[in-house]
């Protein structure tokens, strides 16, 4: 039994509509720590304009952003700051790990550089490169937009799937509530920890 629709009526899923709105206005939180930050700034400049894709402003307040772009290597002194910024962002939020250092630690396999932020932060998109070209960052944002459109729901149910709840590559897990303030956590700084 077909219903005759007038011309100005569109039928669709609310999930798809919400995802379309969200993907086309991803406001980035630039977490630029090192050289990839320069390429991030270049992507925001006029030649490779990221505002064409909806990333109109780079808000430096995490409360006003929905996409955190971690550009550059993250050292262990910076990681609690990164986690605090991630926690301050409101849902729905996504994370792009830009460059080799944010994804895996890059060339810096040393005592102070975290070997991939996805050990401690949930990451949605990884961009290889040292640094990735602005076109690659834009491609990463386009792919993230496709991912949001494909999986997005109105109420954020896609973030509560089993796959998203598990930590990815973390080797050390602390029991109890995650304590960001690692300076006061006696478990962290004991010298008996042998895993790396």
């Amino acid at each position: 039994m077909a219903v005759e629709l007038p011309e100005n009526v569109v039928v669709g899923k609310l999930d798809a509509l919400a995802s379309w709105c969200r993907k086309n206005s991803l406001w980035p939180m630039p977490f630029a720590t090192a050289c990839c930050g320069i390429e991030l700034m270049a992507t925001g400049a006029s030649k490779h304009d990221i505002a064409r894709f909806g990333a109109e402003v780079f808000r430096f307040s995490p409360r006003q952003c929905d996409l955190m772009i971690v550009a550059g290597r993250v050292v262990m002194k910076m990681l609690p700051v990164l986690q605090r910024i991630w926690q301050q962002m409101n849902e729905p939020k996504w994370c792009i790990s830009m460059g080799a250092c944010a994804s895996t630690g890059g060339v810096f396999d040393t005592y102070s550089v975290v070997q991939g932020i996805d050990r401690f932060i949930p990451v949605d998109m990884y961009l290889p490169g040292c640094p990735p070209r602005p076109e690659q960052l834009i491609q990463g944002i386009i792919d993230l937009q496709d991912k949001i459109q494909r999986e997005g729901t109105l109420g954020g149910a896609e973030f509560r799937t089993k796959a998203r709840q598990e930590p990815k590559r973390a080797l050390v897990e602390l029991t109890g509530l995650p304590q960001i303030d690692s300076a006061r956590n006696p478990v962290i700084w004991s010298s008996e920890v042998k895993s790396h």
């Binding site: 262990m76 990681l79 609690p80 986690q83 991630w86 926690q87 396999d109 040393t110 005592y111 102070s112 550089v113 975290v114 070997q115 050990r119 401690f120 932060i121 949930p122 973030f159 509560r160 998203r164 709840q165 598990e166 930590p167 973390a170 080797l171 050390v172 897990e173 602390l174 995650p178 304590q179 960001i180 690692s182 956590n185 962290i188 700084w189 010298s191 920890v193 042998k194 895993s195 790396h196």
Partner: peptide
């Protein structure tokens, strides 16, 4: 050079914890 595990001794945030 890689340290003795200090660099990865941090709590893990997953999608449901933050």
């Amino acid at each position: 050079l890689q340290g003795r595990g200090e660099r990865h001794n941090f709590p893990v945030l997953t999608r449901d914890s933050a």
